[in-house]
Amino acid sequence: MARVALVTGGTRGIGEAICKGLQAAGFTVAANYVGSDDRAKDFSERTGMRTWKWNVADHQATLDNVASIEAELGPVDVVVNNAGITRDGTLLKMTYEAWKEVMDVNLGGCFNTAKATFPGMRQRGWGRIVNIGSINGQAGQYGQVNYAAAKSGIHGFTKALAQEGAKFGVTVNAIAPGYIDTDMVAAVPADVLEKIVAKIPVGRLGHAEEIARAVVFLCSEDAGFVTGSTMSVNGGQHMY
Score class of each variant (00 low, 15 high):
M49T: 11
W52D: 03
W54C: 06
W54M: 09
V56R: 02
D58W: 11
H59E: 13
Q60T: 14
Q60Y: 07
Q60M: 09
A61C: 07
T62W: 02
N65H: 14
S68M: 11
G74V: 13
P75F: 06
V78I: 15
V80D: 07
N81E: 08
A83L: 02
G89S: 14
E97Q: 14
A98S: 13
K100T: 15
V102D: 01
V105L: 04
G109M: 07
C110L: 12
F111W: 12
F111G: 01
A114K: 00
P119I: 11
G120P: 00
G120S: 11
M121D: 03
R122S: 03
Q123A: 15
Q123P: 00
R124F: 00
G125W: 12
G125R: 08
G125A: 11
I129K: 02
I129R: 00
V130M: 04
G133L: 04
G133M: 07
G133V: 08
S134R: 03
I135V: 15
I135N: 03
N136Q: 13
Q138C: 04
A139D: 01
Q141C: 12
Y142C: 09
Y142I: 12
Y147Q: 08
A149W: 09
I154F: 05
I154C: 07
H155Q: 14
K159R: 15
L161D: 03
A162H: 08
Q163W: 08
E164W: 01
G165F: 03
V172R: 02
V172L: 07
N173A: 09
N173K: 10
A174E: 09
A176I: 11
A176N: 15
Y179Q: 06
D181L: 09
T182E: 08
T182S: 10
A186V: 00
